[in-house]
Write a protein that binds this DNA or RNA. Structure first.
Lengths: 239, 239
DNA sequence: TCAAAAGTGTTCCGGGTACACCCATGT
DNA sequence: ACATGGGTGTACCCGGAACACTTTTGA
């Protein structure tokens, strides 16, 4: 009786080979931004159970591989990109979530500049899908996507991560469209501009859009260095 | 070459037994609140590598067990409590984090009323430790604890989860002490009271503290029903 | 000259913060 | 009476929200 309490893996472990083991995978929710829409990079599954359904990009974690490493490996293999924003979100371990047996998956989301990926996308089966009109997916991947999207919404309101989805140079309009797409809200243009300009973190490049059929907008880039140097203040209790 | 890209577990899985598997555990960061201090429930490790060091409460996930179930099982076994606030936080998969082999652990934190636990704590080796003066721990458990504490800080500012650490009836002073302990800040008493009373979510019980050597404080309880009925508003972008 | 989007300021309101005094109770 | 913490109100400031007109460019 006592032994069932005390003989656990943090205290009196006997032999690890006596324990149940499961396959571990990582799944990457790779977000991009294009045509004023939040996109996610998906692949068609060929597993017979999910034939033709969209699935996230993922793979099994290797014996000598950290979880983050595995996620970066998947991302790199699929997009050619490295050094992009990535964050672990949640782990999904439903008993029957994978038809081949118990596979526990650690979900990550990452934010990439969709222009940089396009180069690597020819002749394979990857597709950028609008997050908004995506309903059915393979496995529990819709749930994973929703969870990651929710996390992204929270992050984007509190940290300057959205810029990872934009080109280095962007207009305030593009930035606003990005926020509107991620949060699925409409924002007042003047207040949005005022807000971001008053943060004093956008660097005015003294450049303008080109080839637009209207008055060209000024281009900015985000001053990450300046942001990093600022200390955060206490945020207050707000619910 | 192409095959390394396409033959992954979400698309062309061959046989799951060919893949590397790891042991999966859950670790619970069980927070309590006592003597105006944030506490965490720990156990001494008897593994020779960590003899005498403090470790979190955790155990291996069973073959037919959901991750959340496993976490609740650990919690129940150690505290006798069920139906408490619990939230998955992050998964730690460092290659050498466990001396017995690769063990990937999913970390949860939970918030319990420390009074309810005390009953079950006699004659075992569990201890409530002040989070503030806890430095060295077994495994990577200090890192796990820090991550969970950080998450708790974020949550407590945005959702009414703190009440799970208090008795059903509490004074505003106790509530303030709780926030100060979790966030490690000092708050102005008048503003704190105004804030919480203006939320109109505290139910005045028309009762008072007893046996205190000064003017007794009024007791309140949190109106969870009322909170649940309110819709959240858009929070704004704030970083 | 027209269409389309860029750019710009003011007012109002609510919440955050700083701050000091009287009150109720037990010893 | 005294010590201890409970309870209260006001003034200021800043940031969020609502809101309409002029400017620049390409077609």
């Amino acid at each position: 009786m006592m032994s069932m309490y005390t003989k656990n893996i943090n205290t009196h472990l006997i032999e690890i080979k006596n324990y149940f083991k499961a396959a571990i995978s990582v799944d990457c929710v790779i977000f991009g931004f294009n045509n004023d829409e939040l996109k996610v990079l998906l692949i068609e599954s060929d597993l017979k159970e999910y034939k033709g359904k969209w699935s996230l990009l993922g793979d099994i974690v290797r014996p000598d591989e950290e979880l983050d490493e595995a996620a970066y490996r998947v991302l790199k293999a699929r997009t050619g990109l490295d050094n992009v924003y990535m964050e672990q979100v949640q782990t999904f371990g439903g008993i029957n979530r994978h038809p081949a047996g118990r596979v526990i998956t650690v979900a990550y989301y990452s934010l990439v500049n969709i222009e940089h990926v396009e180069l690597k996308m020819h002749n394979n089966e990857l597709h950028w899908h609008s997050v908004k009109d995506l309903h059915e997916m393979a496995f529990d991947h819709k749930q994973i996507l929703d969870t990651c999207h929710e996390r992204l919404k929270q992050q984007v309101m509190v940290q300057p991560v959205g810029f990872n989805l934009l080109p280095k140079k962007f207009s305030l309009r593009e930035l606003q469209n990005l926020y509107e797409a991620i949060l699925d809200v409409e924002l007042d243009r003047r207040n949005f501009r005022k807000k971001f300009l008053s943060m004093d973190l956008l660097l005015d490049l003294n450049e303008e859009e080109e080839d637009v059929p209207h008055r060209p907008a000024k281009l900015y880039k985000f001053n990450f260095d300046k942001y990093d140097q600022r200390k955060k203040r206490y945020l207050g209790i707000g619910f």
